[in-house]
Design a protein around this nucleic acid. Structure first.
Length: 304
DNA sequence: TAGCCGTGGGA
DNA sequence: TTCCCAAGGCT
């Protein structure tokens, strides 16, 4: 018997969500720096890396300062990686700053200081994965690709699949699903990507979605089904932060960012009481290249 | 591939 | 206070 509950595998044509979403986006989209006319592709790349797991409101000020200091990839590449880590400040996941510096170095050296437009070329850069590569190709260059982040996955899970929340991210399934929603027209497809993301960020949010103001409420599968509880596999929850190695790494990094001179081992030892965990955090930071030095010379951000 | 990698805002 | 979760990527 045919499974009529599996909306994703049904042959029946699905309602058009792109058209009403783009109309809504034109009227309601936030005024954000990377949506300004003439915003450079380099700015789009920097913004997308900063936005990985980080809220828009925290990114905007850092982004403007970053682009003022480093207007092109070559400008960033000419600075020590530690300066990128310092300028990253408290955005979190500082490995992103190191990856961005490495990406800038590659762009300056291998791409004539021009951010690549090709998705595969973008994917080859450090710190750029399925989401960021397509976001740059679509939002900086206007090309036609599916862009899938957590907002898109949530909107598609609800509106198209009729599920309350997205399962674990899976490119093999997520990219074709978003592709199936995109209009053929290149510019309309780019607008649809932005619109679906924006809906997920502003209306179709994880907790307490604002279905009463949703422009596609009348064609939402989840709503039509009566908002069933999510039953399928759930996206994994992140581990507790308090007391974690992540917290200790963050404390060590804050210490190094705040110092213009190498930080002594004694000073490092003051950031956290547990010696074993401290050692583990410091070792992992050294392994990541976020910290250089040793007990004899002290510890500092990478200068070359 | 499941687990790890920061920090902070909002409920 | 505590918990959730945020324009993901890497190994």
């Amino acid at each position: 018997m045919e499974d009529t509950t599996a909306a994703d595998t049904s042959d029946a044509p699905r309602p058009d969500i792109a058209t009403p979403l783009v109309a809504w986006f034109r009227a309601e989209a936030r005024d954000l720096p990377w949506r300004r006319p003439g915003f450079p592709a380099w700015g789009t790349l920097v913004s997308e890396i900063m936005l990985q797991q980080t809220q828009v409101a925290r990114v905007v000020p850092r982004l403007e300062a970053w682009l003022t200091r480093w207007p092109t990839p070559a400008d960033l590449a000419a600075s020590p990686p530690g300066e990128a880590v310092r300028a990253w400040d408290r955005l979190g996941y500082p490995r992103r700053a190191l990856a961005l510096h490495a990406a800038a170095t590659a762009i300056a050296g291998q791409h004539d200081n021009v951010v690549p437009r090709d998705v595969d070329a973008l994917l080859a850069l450090p710190g750029i994965g399925d989401y960021t590569a397509r976001a740059v190709a679509v939002f900086a260059y206007g090309d036609r690709h599916p862009v899938v982040d957590v907002n898109v996955r949530r909107v598609l899970a609800r509106a198209v699949l009729g599920e309350g929340e997205p399962g674990p991210a899976k490119a093999k399934r997520d990219l074709p699903l978003m592709e199936s929603v995109l209009p053929e027209d290149r510019e309309a497809a780019a607008a649809t990507n932005a619109a679906v993301m924006e809906l997920g960020a502003l209306v179709c949010v994880a907790r307490s979605p604002a279905c009463d103001v949703c422009p596609i409420a009348d064609r939402c599968s989840w709503r039509a089904a009566g908002y069933p509880e999510h039953d399928g596999p759930r996206a994994p929850r992140q581990a507790r932060f308090a007391g974690s190695d992540r917290q200790v790494r963050g404390l060590v990094m804050a210490e190094l960012r705040a110092s213009d001179v190498p930080v002594t081992r004694d000073e490092v030892d003051l950031v956290w009481p547990d010696a074993e965990q401290r050692a583990r955090a410091l070792a992992s930071l050294l392994r990541d290249g976020l910290v250089v030095g040793d007990d004899a010379t002290g510890y500092r951000l990478p200068d070359a």
